[in-house]
C-alpha cells in the first residue's frame, strides 16, 4: 500500500467575528495516500476553501496535527511553509491566477525560478509538461490572449513544473465552459494515471465524480463517501 502523503488529525480552525470565534473546521481527520485522486465536495460556506488553504500551507490551523509528505506542518514556521509550497505543492486555482504581465512560459517556469533555477534550465525542464498540455504554440503569448481552457492548462503546467508531491486544485473547472471543464478533468485523469496525487476541491458533484475517491464537507465536518 502506498504511503500517506497527507495526514490530518483532529484539525480545527475558526475565525473571530467580533469577540466571538466562529468554527469553520471541526476536528477534521483526513488522509491522502500517494497517487490518490481525491475530491473534497461541499457547498459554499462549508469550509472547503479553508481546508484547501491549510492543506496548501497558506493558512494555519488552530488545533490538531498536519503532516505533509512526512513534514509536521503544524510545527513549521512561515518561512518553512513558503519553501514547502514551492517544493511539494502545485496549485491550480479556479481563476487560473496567472500573472498578466508575464508570458505563458514565464508563468509556467516561475516555481522553478523561485527555487533558484536559471531561466534556460527551467524552460528546458518544463518542455515535456508543455508538450503534454499542448500549449507549446502559446508560450510567447500573455494570459489575456488565451481562452479560459488554455489558461487553465497553463495553470496546470505551472502546478506541474516543480514536480510537486501534491496537486491541489480549487474548483478547477469553475470558470470554464462545459467542454473545457471536461478537457481539464480528462487531463486530471491522465495526471492521476501518471502517478500524481491530486486533491480537488469542488462544489459540483459531477466534477467530484471524476475523482478516484470523494469526501464531503458540510458545516466544517468532513465525511468519507
Amino acid at each position: 500500500m502506498a504511503e500517506e502523503l497527507i495526514r490530518i488529525v483532529n484539525m480545527s480552525k475558526g475565525y473571530l467575528l467580533g469577540d466571538e470565534k466562529v468554527p469553520v473546521l471541526k476536528e477534521i481527520c483526513f488522509s491522502v495516500r500517494q497517487g490518490e485522486y481525491v475530491a473534497v465536495l461541499g457547498p459554499s460556506g462549508s469550509g472547503k476553501t479553508t481546508l484547501m488553504n491549510i492543506i496548501g500551507c497558506m493558512d494555519v490551523m488552530d488545533e490538531g496535527e498536519y503532516y505533509l509528505d512526512g513534514v509536521a506542518i503544524h510545527e513549521t514556521a512561515q518561512a518553512g511553509l513558503t519553501q514547502l509550497r514551492n517544493q511539494k505543492i502545485g496549485f491550480i486555482f479556479q481563476n487560473y491566477q496567472l500573472i498578466p504581465a508575464y508570458t505563458v512560459l514565464q508563468n509556467i517556469i516561475m516555481p522553478l525560478i523561485i527555487r533558484g533555477m536559471g531561466h534556460k534550465e527551467a524552460e528546458e525542464k518544463c518542455m515535456d509538461i508543455i508538450n503534454l498540455l499542448g500549449i507549446g504554440s502559446r508560450l510567447r503569448h500573455r494570459p489575456v490572449e488565451l481562452s479560459g481552457g488554455q489558461r487553465q492548462r497553463v495553470s496546470i503546467a505551472r502546478a506541474l513544473a516543480g514536480e510537486p508531491a501534491l496537486l491541489l486544485a480549487d474548483e478547477p473547472t469553475g470558470a470554464l465552459d462545459q467542454s473545457s471543464g471536461k478537457e481539464v478533468l480528462k487531463l486530471f485523469g491522465q495526471l492521476h494515471d501518471r502517478g500524481n496525487t491530486i486533491v480537488m476541491i469542488t462544489h459540483d458533484l459531477n466534477v467530484a465524480a471524476a475523482a478516484q475517491r470523494m469526501v464531503t464537507i458540510t458545516d466544517g465536518v468532513l465525511r468519507e463517501v
Binding site: 497558506m58 513558503t82 514547502l84 509550497r85 514551492n86 491566477q97 500573472i99 523561485i114 505551472r158 516543480g162
Partner: peptide
Amino acid sequence: TNEIGILKAIGCGRGD
C-alpha cells in the same frame, strides 16, 4: 496584490 499573492502561493519568499 494579486500577483504578490500568486508569487507567495507558489513559494516566493518575503526576501524575494
